[in-house]
């Protein structure tokens, strides 16, 4: 599903002394079927942006189009409701939202709310649980007996069970250990490919943006500052640094080496590729 923001402004607590403009004339387009990373430092407006995609927030001015649904100021609830079924959201620390007495009950909550056939979803539960890396034996246990990482997987299974067409992920791997972090992002990437989703990953981890996304949007102070293929965006070292964002190490190191005449590609290449290039161009031993 294509997602389009046109001149979108959003102001929190409009008309009160605490009024705060979080989005400022945002024009941006996320193409159908893409895996897009939205990066930006804290307070850049990235979370506000993503909450517009399923109508949790409605523009103060401008409009958001998701497929054929148009969200404008004053949009009716009956317009928003069908959109919620199509857009799945994984919030930060989704394990804080668990409440069921069993894992199964928790996962089924979303599908039931969306009027899906419970029997059909139930049949798929073991497979779904395996996919997120949990054994099906957990289905009848209390989610609160699980470790933090396992609870997160249950919460994510609950979102995937609703079979969304658009998946919005807000820092889904925050606080996980390195292997859990990688496993989770790989899961989202392969789910994305297998189900032909449109996926939006909100993150401040530039390496994740580089490794998993096709397209990167950089937000700062409520506006979109850069958009493009990861490598093109990451070459903008100066503006990224000015926005308090880290440049992926491959690019940062590549550029420093280029400056001292190493013939190195400045791309988001693997460590192995960079090492290969260094070894190919290695100065002759003893040549000083």
């Amino acid at each position: 599903m294509h997602i389009k923001f046109e001149d979108v402004t959003y102001t929190y607590m409009l008309g009160s002394p605490f009024e705060k403009r979080a989005l400022n004339g945002v024009d941006v387009s996320i193409s159908s079927g893409s895996f897009t990373a939205v990066v930006g430092s804290t307070g850049s407006g990235k979370s506000t942006l993503m909450q517009h995609i399923n109508g949790l927030l409605v523009p103060t001015s401008g409009q958001v189009t998701v497929d054929s649904t148009v969200l404008q100021p004053g949009v009716k609830r009956k317009v928003i409701k069908p959109l919620r079924k199509k857009v799945g959201m994984v919030f930060q620390y989704p394990e804080h939202q668990l409440f069921g007495s069993t894992v199964e009950e928790d996962i089924l909550f979303g599908p039931i709310q969306h009027g899906m056939s419970v029997e059909r979803v139930k049949r798929r539960l073991p497979e779904l649980l395996n996919l997120v890396g949990l054994h099906e034996d957990y289905l009848h246990e209390s989610p609160f007996q699980l470790s933090g990482g396992q609870m997160r997987r249950v919460a994510i299974a609950g979102v995937l069970a609703t079979e969304p067409e658009v998946l919005i992920l807000d820092e889904p791997a925050a606080g996980l250990d390195p292997s859990g972090h990688r496993a989770l992002l790989q899961l989202f990437r392969s789910w994305h490919e297998e189900h032909g989703l449109t996926t939006v990953l909100v993150t401040h981890d530039m390496e994740d943006a580089a490794n998993y996304a096709d397209d990167v949007i950089v937000m700062n102070e409520g506006s979109v500052k850069l958009q493009g293929k990861p490598i093109d965006v990451f070459r903008e070292v100066e503006s990224l640094t000015a926005m308090n964002l880290a440049v992926p190490p491959a690019v940062r190191i590549g550029m420093a080496l280029r400056r001292s005449n190493w013939s190195i590609d400045v791309t988001n290449q693997s460590s192995e590729q960079l090492a290969e290039q260094l070894m190919t161009n290695w100065p002759e031993k003893g040549g000083h």
Binding site: A256, L257, S260, N261, L278, E284, G287
Partner: peptide, 8 residues
């Protein structure tokens, strides 16, 4: 790395 390269 930069120093070793400039010695070429």
């Amino acid at each position: 790395l930069c120093t070793s390269n400039s010695r070429m």
